[in-house]
Amino acid sequence: MLKLVDHLVLEQQAVLDAWFDLILGTYSENTAVLWKKRDDPFANPVRHRFEAGMRGIVVGLGTCGQTPDVATFGPYLDEIVRVRAIQDFTPSQATAFIFLLKKAVRETLWDKIVEHELYIELLALESAIDVLALFAMDIYCQCREKLAALRIDQIKKQYDRLLKRANLVCDLSAEGGEEK
């Protein structure tokens, strides 16, 4: 008999479409229209990244067993979180998209779940999705830290060489390491 995750993989397109629609619901209406367009990935990079990430996540959930691991899901979550991390969302808004997958799964696969009594598997799947949310939080933080680091770097780069030239800072690299 097919398991819930098998149904998930078999009907991934329907789940993905439902999920994508839910995620687009977090943007304003006319923005959603643009990002919905199945344009080429360079004219519409947001959709492209979201699609790639979402598909990876759904397929990954189909094969990951009980506990999802960062190595598998990190890159896929990154595709989405990296974009949302700089889109004027609060941290919870930026990462909440992952919970929308639960809704998409229930809406799309509910008939199958009822028919085959897959409730326990549904609970397991939802727990796995909860784990993904925690990963997403990690990635979100990494992205924001990166952003802060980039800002600091920019200031440093602006004045670094001037300070060196003004002989205000000690340039260790020019002297060679102490241990040599």
Binding site: K37, R38, D39, D40, P41, F42, A43
Partner: peptide, 18 residues
């Protein structure tokens, strides 16, 4: 002017872009 690039890894595309 809007040219759209098709990528090998993507499936076939149908219709005009808007």
């Amino acid at each position: 002017r809007n040219t759209s690039v098709k990528l090998q890894q993507e499936g076939p595309k149908v219709g005009y872009s808007s």
